[in-house]
Write a protein that binds this DNA or RNA. Structure first.
Lengths: 155, 155
DNA sequence: CAGGGATACTTGCGGGAACAAGCTAACTAA
DNA sequence: TTAGTTAGCTTGTTCCCGCAAGTATCCCTG
């Protein structure tokens, strides 16, 4: 649009691309979180932990890997796992090969809880987000994210 | 990819499109927020308020409109504005036409604060996000967001 | 021109998240 | 083998946010 010496301003297209994502994300996450809490007494972060573990080999993962996977601080994850252990969805086990480490283990109850919530949640994601795009656009979006944060779409 | 009776699962492309955005957003917001705090003692939410007001006619906006614009609860905005009033960036004024209402007014100090932070922030948004896309892709993204949440890209 | 209901904002309260400090276990080097 | 450093989690503290309840103003209907 116009380039000042430090190109400090955003074109209206850039603004739409950036701020649009911020607002979309905020609104979407707010709704989906409320939906999960109402239907399954689970926050979106808690759901993501269950999901991530359900997809991990043996339903088990190191605390630090889990924190990185859902983009949460270590201390945040400690307490989140505390809550899920308290309600029986997770168990903590020592890591055999490195005894400083702890694993978060998905229990059978936790897996059931995940599978129940999953139906609600995926329907919500579809209706609010994925349904707005055709298949080619979905592929395009995934490629975009991968380009910005390599590994963002990996498990 | 495969359609069960309720089509409950996500294809890997859908997963990449959805979870990729979640992770990208979380990582990006975390970095940008930290950058603003470190450089300008301003949270990302606070910055967004200053930005939104700076673009509003007369640097003034009703509390509820502001809350909607940055996707924050009313009570959250009340306290956020409290903080910005306390440090002199904003002032509260009664709304003349509806005396239940309050305006948040950007002060001169607030506008200076915004302009300072803006340089840092836009550089961060560019280098972490916008630079990964060419112009056509930027336009595409803006259109996507508009499609999901109409008004998402409007001021 | 009341009186009931809606609207705009604030306040009380509780929960979740990050940062920094602490603790244990593991590596490294002499 | 033992001191020093690093890595992995947890705990103490503080901040920010959302929900529900409270207060003030406006609107509408009779």
């Amino acid at each position: 649009m116009q380039a000042s010496s430090v190109n400090v301003s955003l074109s209206s297209a850039e603004l739409a691309a950036w701020r649009g994502m911020l607002r979309l994300h905020a609104a979407l996450v707010r709704d989906l979180d409320a939906e999960l809490r109402a239907g399954h007494d689970l926050s979106l972060h808690e759901y993501e932990v269950l999901l991530t573990l359900a997809e991990a080999p043996e339903g088990r993962m190191r605390m630090s890997d889990l924190a990185a996977a859902i983009v949460l601080s270590q201390s945040g994850l400690t307490r989140l796992v505390d809550r899920l252990v308290r309600d029986g969805s997770l168990a903590r086990t020592r890591c055999e090969v490195d005894r400083r480490g702890l694993n978060a283990d998905l229990t059978d109850a936790g897996r059931r809880r995940y599978l129940e919530a999953r139906v609600t949640h995926l329907a919500g994601v579809r209706s609010r987000f994925l349904d707005r795009f055709d298949e080619a656009e979905i592929v395009l979006l995934g490629g975009f994210w991968e380009r910005v944060v390599p590994g963002a779409t990996a498990e």
